[in-house]
Lab assay of single mutants.
Amino acid sequence: DHWHVHIDGERIRLDGASEEFIRTLEELIRRGTDARELKEIIKEYLR
């Protein structure tokens, strides 16, 4: 599956992301997590 998110107007691909990770991201977004912080979390995950 190819997922991607838009954060700060930037399109970030989440290739190979699990549904669990996507749900976690959605939860963080709902909580109002800062965009820079979200991008860091995604970069760490994709390593």
Rank of each mutant, 00 (worst) to 15 (best):
E10W: 02
H6C: 08
L25P: 00
D8L: 04
G16N: 13
L25T: 01
A35R: 06
I42L: 11
L14E: 00
R13F: 14
I7K: 00
R47G: 15
L25S: 00
H4S: 04
L25K: 00
E37D: 13
V5E: 02
I12P: 01
R11F: 15
E20S: 12
E40C: 04
E10A: 05
H2W: 09
D1W: 02
V5T: 10
R30N: 11
E19Y: 07
V5I: 14
I42K: 00
T24G: 11
H4D: 08
I41Y: 12
K39E: 06
G16L: 08
L14P: 01
E26D: 10
A35N: 09
D1A: 08
I12T: 02
G9D: 07
S18L: 05
K43S: 11
I42V: 09
S18P: 13
R23P: 00
R36Q: 15
H4K: 01
Y45N: 12
H2M: 06
G9H: 06
G16Q: 08
G32R: 03
T33E: 05
Y45R: 10
T33W: 01
L46G: 03
D15I: 13
L46E: 10
A17E: 03
A35F: 09
E10P: 02
D15Y: 08
R30D: 08
D8M: 04
E27R: 06
R36E: 13
D8I: 02
E20I: 08
L28Y: 08
S18C: 02
L38R: 00
G9T: 04
L14F: 05
W3V: 14
T33S: 07
T33A: 11
G32W: 02
D34K: 11
I12L: 07
F21S: 01
L38Q: 00
E20K: 08
A35L: 10
L28S: 04
R30P: 00
R23Q: 12
G16E: 07
Y45E: 14
E44T: 03
W3L: 15
E10M: 06
E40F: 07
G9N: 10
E10G: 04
I22D: 00
E44I: 05
T33R: 06
L46V: 07
I42T: 01
H2I: 09
H2N: 15
H6E: 14
E20D: 12
K43H: 14
E37V: 15
L38G: 00
E37T: 15
A17C: 02
L14I: 13
R31H: 11
